[in-house]
Nucleic acid binder design. Structure first.
Length: 389
RNA sequence: GGCGCGUUCGUCUAGUGGUUUAGGACAUCGCCCUCUCAAGGCGAAGAUCACGGGUUCGAAACCCGUACGCGCUACCA
């Protein structure tokens, strides 16, 4: 148990659907919060206006709800640290960026995309790491004022000091050290006035009193930028925990090209949320005993970040299917009847039957199916009118 | 290319220096049960612990190197 009550967050980008990797991230945050009597917060990171998808936020919330991961604070339910949608917090980011500029921790940059592309190209040609050359750092206050007055578009960049060591102590990955010379002067505020992930994330995590940042491993490389921001603001860093990635059967990052990755795909294929959650919990975590069938309460009870693995895990559909069978069999007959009736209504069968009849069918078939709809496939004879021989 | 992370049966994993002839689960195969198919029970096969060096009386476990994989290297998250 952690001393103070932790506050954690799941911060997805509304780009269409909830990815199973995202579900696992959300789950681990949820389990950690519940295990330690903390709060689980949902925050929508919609700062990339070019990738916005209509209805994605609603879909995300619905899918999370279907999965059984109720959040304590966030869109719709509210909370003391709102708003929980980043596009509604623009003035907040501006305010904090101003402080950074005043303290020379950030600066205006008026460079064009063409110039940026050009220096990047040259650096790559010389096999150097592509980095911004701090060209605009030299600009005087008057020059900056004049350019802004002229309506030139600009971004705000993080002013990274060269050659200092940045240590990160990650609960899962352990001690990781970066040299600041490999860190680019990251754009914090884009020319459209929206913040980048790096700025918005740090400001919000601080303002929302997030104690533990539990997120995917793809963020580990940018964590030094975040740590720098915490230091520049004079804020206490949260505890970091970077989760290993979910992989395809070929050990590449789980992608839509090869398999279903959207939680809603699994839901639509008849997987039970209990099974999906149970399965995804086991992708990178074990209690250390040999238990593999879990109810959500048992997961909450046993989950600790210290027992999360370091290496990526392949998403194995066969094992998920087995867990679905296990969870399906734990359901009562009326519950399976309800599920099955929905499948039956969508089928080509037209006869009507009583719940008692469906109950008999379910009881006859429950040991023989992985999904409720399989009754239709494996035993269609229950629903066909017998013909005289 | 640079930086970072990782590497135990096909897959998910146990393992924190001696109890390990490396344990469990899914999948596979066999047997039992059984009018059938399942479920269930029992069992088999499957990992020279990526590779090479060290440290140690002893290493899957600790250290170094190599290989391979993955991630990041955007005014995307």
């Amino acid at each position: 148990m952690i001393n103070e009550f932790p506050r954690v967050r799941f911060a997805p980008s509304p780009t269409g659907y909830l990815h199973v990797g995202g579900l696992r991230t959300a789950l681990y945050n949820y389990l950690f919060a519940k295990h330690n009597n903390g709060k689980f917060i949902l925050r929508i990171e919609d700062t990339d206006r070019t990738r916005l998808v209509e209805g994605a936020v609603e879909n995300l919330i619905d899918t999370l709800k279907w999965s059984g991961l109720d959040y304590d604070e966030g869109p719709l339910v509210g909370g003391d640290c709102g708003p929980y949608i980043q596009s509604e917090r623009l003035d907040i980011y501006n305010q904090y960026v101003k402080k950074l500029i005043e303290n020379k921790k950030a600066y205006y940059c008026f460079c064009s995309a063409e110039r940026l592309d050009k220096i990047r190209e040259e650096q790559q040609l010389q096999k150097l790491q592509p980095k911004y050359d701090k060209h605009c750092l030299q600009l005087s206050a008057e020059e900056i004022e004049q350019k802004i007055k002229n309506g030139e578009s600009y971004v705000i960049r993080l002013n990274v000091l060269p050659s200092e060591k940045i240590h990160i102590n990650d609960i899962i990955k352990g001690d990781v050290e970066f040299d600041s010379s490999v860190i680019d002067d990251q754009v914090l505020l884009k020319s459209d006035g929206y913040p980048t992930y790096h700025l918005a994330n740090v400001v919000d995590d601080h303002l929302m009193k997030i104690t533990h940042v539990i997120r995917g491993e793809e963020w580990l490389s940018s964590t030094p930028k975040h740590v720098l921001l915490y230091d520049y603001f004079g804020w206490e860093r949260p505890v970091f925990a970077h989760l290993p990635l979910l992989l395809n059967i070929d050990r590449k990052k789980l992608s839509k090209r090869q398999s279903d990755v959207a939680v809603e795909d699994f839901r639509d294929k008849g997987f039970l949320h209990e099974a999906l959650v149970n399965f995804v919990a086991l992708l990178g975590w074990t209690a250390g005993d040999d238990v593999e069938y879990y109810h959500i309460d048992e997961l909450i009870n046993k989950f600790t970040l210290e027992r999360v693995n370091k290496s990526g895990a392949v998403f194995d559909l066969e094992k998920l299917t087995w867990l679905n069978e296990e969870h399906l069999r734990k359901k009562s007959t009326p519950e399976i009847v309800d599920m099955f009736k929905k499948c039956y209504e969508k089928s080509t069968f037209t006869n009507t039957y009583s719940d008692e009849y469906f109950g008999m069918v379910v009881d006859a078939m429950r040991e023989r199916i992985s999904f409720a709809y399989e009754i239709l496939i494996k035993s269609p004879f229950f629903f066909e009118t017998p013909r005289n021989l």
